[in-house]
Design a protein around this nucleic acid. Structure first.
Lengths: 209, 209, 209, 209
DNA sequence: CATGAATGAGTGTTCATTCAT
DNA sequence: TATGAATGAACACTCATTCAT
């Protein structure tokens, strides 16, 4: 019973923390890092400023937690996509799908807002770097697998493929396209997949598609 | 004679304005929009804060002028590339070349810094939209020309090609690659060109490359 | 039996209160009145902030209790010294001894820390005044005794002697000397005694020293 | 004429700075370092908070300037007293006179208020130390001169005399006595001088007093 | 009684903007 | 026209105090 009580409190605490993060994300998207002020975040959550500081002792911490959440979320997706069955192409398309779908939602745009604040860069860089390394490593392995299996053109360096893919995965242009409902995420995946995979295809390989 | 005097003054004024813009660009890149303060810009230019305000009555105006300049600059490049002789591919590759080369330089990074400041977006959006429309129009015509000439696959919608191209043109991933000297702009143009143009190539067309 | 239980509880309560006071004294010395925060005091004592407030409903009260304790402590010493046998000089030297020895210890420095906080003065003043009156009264009687017995020069007003003595008793300069181990309390007593008692000696009196 | 204009502005600036320092001193004495807030200082001076920060970029700087002013002031007095003609006793009495007279005025109490703020100590210590060293050096020389000339008892170490004198010079007890108008500075000098100089007198020397 | 989560008033500091000279 | 001193709104963060559990 003691345990239940504790975990109840703890659960409530985590629920509120999650609420704070969601709210902060909203404000961040509306106003950017600088215009987001702690008072307003607190007010929107419905708590006092002091309470907000109990959860996140610095504005930076709040924003860093947001970053962490997003990054973990993304890394998770990448992991799952990477270990899915099927061709490398299908797995990478799955990633495109996830990314484009997220663009419609709020969460997909937080990273943009965060990286916008130049003064946060030093802070973000380190954590971002670590996760980005993991992210890159997974994708590189996937691409190399595609090369080994004969799907991809071995003449194109893996790092080029990786960054080309990344450019298409996290593209501001596509984000606008999707937010304006000019294309659906599904369509976009189809077309971008078509272009990219034709582009990196092994010229000698007979695609099953 | 009155006119000459005026135009001399006017010329000096414009020279100073240009200097202000250059300086502002520097500071913007170093510190981002919020950390860039009017005092410092004025000091670096070597004028008083009040004088700075004679040229740009709000901080926003300064930054908007910077945006305008950059956009015009880009539009100019796009124009020139568009009317150059040669295949559509060669002309688009020329654009990639310009973009990647600019990434190494300061000026190419200003737009990133500007768009980073979420709170500027409403301001930027309008002007940006107009210029982006022009930019898009030119590229769309180019792409359509490529489709007509048989270079490009007509099955892929022009807007998709446009935004895919744009994603590769102004890619944060590539910017990092280039700033880290992992690839030269030239190499990058070659590889990205290869991937993109294979990707959008007309399957029936025999490339001259 | 009820009584015993209560007094047990009461004893525990007083023990804790004493612990709080000791801890508060430590923090006060380390950080001064303002930097001393209730949270830290509670944490160091090992109780919750709320519990601390059960004992001392305001920060001021805590600090006032500390003052009281110190003052009573000092008053006690003065009392004992005053009723000791021997010459007035020997009794006053005993007080010097006590004071200088205390300077090495923590407790002797608390009053300095407290009086340092100018904003506490109104609060301290009243209580301090009462106790200081008592303190003064005792010393004045002692000095007058010294005058009657022929030890001290009756031409010097008692209040002057008192405050001169007090200046030497609670001197910041001597505190530094002693904390830096430049002199030992014993030595200091000897020299200061020599100077002061020569200074106030009855010119006609043949000292026994 | 240019020069005159500049020096006029500069003079006004310094006048205001002096006004700020005076005001800050007042507030400091009334409320202590922590309760003194920049807003109020500015308001009392009749300027905006921002203007205050043009003169003193940190609260600390304001308070440090105050310290400097006081210390220089004191050092100045000590210097002048030290080089005055007459016996060492008369010169030291002159210092007592200055100190006790200052106690009536506001300025004499600022150092007490400043040293009260424990958190300022590290800041103050360094500067204070330097000046205190100078102060001590001058007084030590004076005391040694008194010993050489036969005025003072060579059996008492110079440092003891110095600190005893300092204790009497800057005594909180005497400050109260003077602020309460219990004694006049003049009287106090006479009595304290009598006590101290009898106390440190060379037993073999025939005083001219 | 004991707890510690919640509160919100208070304050140092920055900086875009104005305006008298 | 050019200046830069003056302004004051804005904001992160702290901490004494309260009170529901």
């Amino acid at each position: 019973m003691r345990e239940t009580t504790l975990s109840l409190k703890e659960r409530q605490r985590q629920q509120r923390e999650e609420l704070i993060l969601q709210t902060a994300a909203e404000v961040l998207l509306e106003k950017g890092y600088h215009e987001m002020n702690m008072e307003e975040v607190a007010a929107r959550v419905g708590i006092a400023k002091g309470t907000l500081y109990l959860h996140f002792p610095r504005k930076e911490d709040l924003v860093l937690a947001l970053l962490e959440q997003q990054m973990q979320d993304i890394l998770q997706s990448v992991h799952q996509a990477a270990i899915a069955p099927g061709s490398v192409r299908s797995r990478l398309e799955c990633l495109l799908q996830i990314s484009y779908t997220r663009m419609k939602g709020q969460r997909g745009r937080i990273l943009y807002a965060l990286f916008g604040a130049v003064e946060l860069r030093p802070l973000l860089r380190e954590r971002h770097h670590t996760l980005f390394e993991q992210f890159s490593t997974i994708l590189e392995r996937l691409i190399d697998e595609g090369k080994s299996s004969g799907e991809f053109d071995t003449a194109i360096p893996t790092s080029i493929m990786l960054h080309t893919f990344t450019s298409l995965l996290a593209s501001y242009s596509f984000k606008r396209l999707i937010l304006d409902d000019t294309v659906s995420p599904d369509e976009l995946v189809r077309y971008v997949g078509q272009i990219f995979f034709r582009g990196v295809a092994n010229p000698l390989h007979v695609s099953e598609a």
